[in-house]
Design a protein around this nucleic acid. Sequence first.
DNA 1: CATCGACTACAAGTATTCGCATAGGAATTT
DNA 2: AAATTCCTATGCGAATACTTGTAGTCGATG
Lengths: 219, 219
Amino acid sequence: MRILVVDDELDIREFVQYNLLKEGYEVACATNGREAVERAVEFRPHLILMDMMMPEMDGREACRALRANPATSKMMIVFLSAVCEEESLVECYEAGADDYITKPVSMKVLCSRVGAICKRIASGEREVFPKSSRLNEEQHSFVADSGEEVRLAVKEFEILRLLHSENRIFTREEIFNAVWGQGVVVGSRTLDVHIRHLRTKIGDNHISTYKGVGFRYEE
Amino acid sequence: MRILVVDDELDIREFVQYNLLKEGYEVACATNGREAVERAVEFRPHLILMDMMMPEMDGREACRALRANPATSKMMIVFLSAVCEEESLVECYEAGADDYITKPVSMKVLCSRVGAICKRIASGEREVFPKSSRLNEEQHSFVADSGEEVRLAVKEFEILRLLHSENRIFTREEIFNAVWGQGVVVGSRTLDVHIRHLRTKIGDNHISTYKGVGFRYEE
DNA sequence: CATCGACTACAAGTATTCGCATAGGAATTT
DNA sequence: AAATTCCTATGCGAATACTTGTAGTCGATG
């Protein structure tokens, strides 16, 4: 799990970085908002811990900039600031922050909150990175991240559309209801065959099966 | 993938051009809005990276001019500007910009965003160039890109007009409704016959069928 | 380690959809 | 009126998409 620490004060950066590293996180730093935006693109952090008041570009602006770019728009952004006035809190949320931690804060508290956030990310409750592949609704095709396009048959497309729509496991029953409709009954093997066709067309690593539960689209 | 870089400052032009060339893009430059409009016609770029403030003709005006000309109206236009005020951002979008990047920006960030845009273009999600073939309403004829003209029957013309109008798959039902009208019912094979006639007249590679979905005009 | 349930692979069968040839009748032109 | 072009219908073969059966694999569980 990668975390980007953004603060203009060296002491705080190093303190936070040291403790997060000890907890097993991968950590990168930036000293102002502008740097943060750049590093976010190249480092691809799951979580950004950012100070509010910084030179060059402050937290609010940086937050808006991050939300505006598709590559970074879904990352967790948590403000870590000494300013604990109501106003700035509201401002943060308006700028698109996910959470807010007031300074000073003990490492124990910080780590526990960071841990909670990371658990949410790991569980898939919150998607942090945008999918690089897309479905082309108008052409009934799948566009891989490499850019190449594959034409899909109707059933294949409908199954993939469902799986692709949300970042979670879909049960077999859900898939049958969504693709074939409630009343229709087809053999259970049918779905397996379509899944296999999809895998050969779009690559084996995209659809993973959860035995006894269902299927899920990944990457 | 061709990119047109428009900026009045030589340093920035060369910096951006050098880095985009290194990434494998074909790059051309212009130093103001007027030049940009001219070069866009002859260079036929997929993407135009344009500064906001320039002498002679500024970004907004150039953008509007590009949108007004059918030959350039669908190109991706992205502003690259130091002015990060809300107002100018809104102005850009009003002028018809597709995206907005604030300067200064690292090459890494720029490349990643340019890459994302190019992927969208490559996937066909966005059509950048107008179709080279066109329909002649008065003559009820089809003019191929080679210039030769084919006369079409009424039904043929109406079907082709529909397919030609948008870059997507049209279902059989849509075609029936558009060409014959809602109430009228004709045999399902009838459409196939007309499609075959069209294909023999305008070439086999233009209309592709999506089994179970519909037909689509291409190229 | 045996068993069971659930998934996969392969192969074959069934159903649907499409392309094409052909043909008769309507509309238009000569 | 005759000739030509255009529209629609129909039937069948071919191609594609979908479903099912059988057999085999995998992993968890007692």
